[in-house]
Amino acid sequence: MTHEPNAIPSRLDPERVPRRDLLGLTALWTAAGTLFFSVVGMMRIPKAAVLSSPSKKFRVALPDTLAPGVAYVPPGRSVALFKDEKGVHAISTICTHLGCIVRPETAGFECPCHGSRYDAAGVVTKGPAPKSLPWLKVVNAGGQFTVDEGATVPPGTKVSA
């Protein structure tokens, strides 16, 4: 729309001086920006920086009578420990599918929730589990063993007893 130099602007014409727009837009974008960043900031709250779960490291003494291939599950832990002539190893008993606790069976593990089955080395043989059961880090602490549920080791890693 063009304007004659001396024409009286009609109320329907768009305003020619955008100064109010500047103020208005500044207010609008300040409000929008504040809203956005405060929402982002608030979203930061529920993402915990420190997890409240108890320590994942624990020390355990294996029973002397533990036969090779038989799992020893320390009370209160979801870890199965095995001892044979090559040494000691620990396999997590948390199902890689949806987090149920698998039961050590003869020559493997079985999940009660959706029927996943693993062999003695934790490799999936049946069911919906997407991954093998992880082998956990074990350190020989002089007769006892320190197991770290937070650290995995390549399958087959064993610690001499």
Binding site: P46, K47, A48, S52
Partner: peptide, 16 residues
């Protein structure tokens, strides 16, 4: 992992 962390506030179902 982020979804689970936001939902549970931890890595397992617990007090959080």
């Amino acid at each position: 992992g982020l979804q689970k962390l936001l939902l549970l506030g931890s890595d397992a179902v617990g007090a959080e």
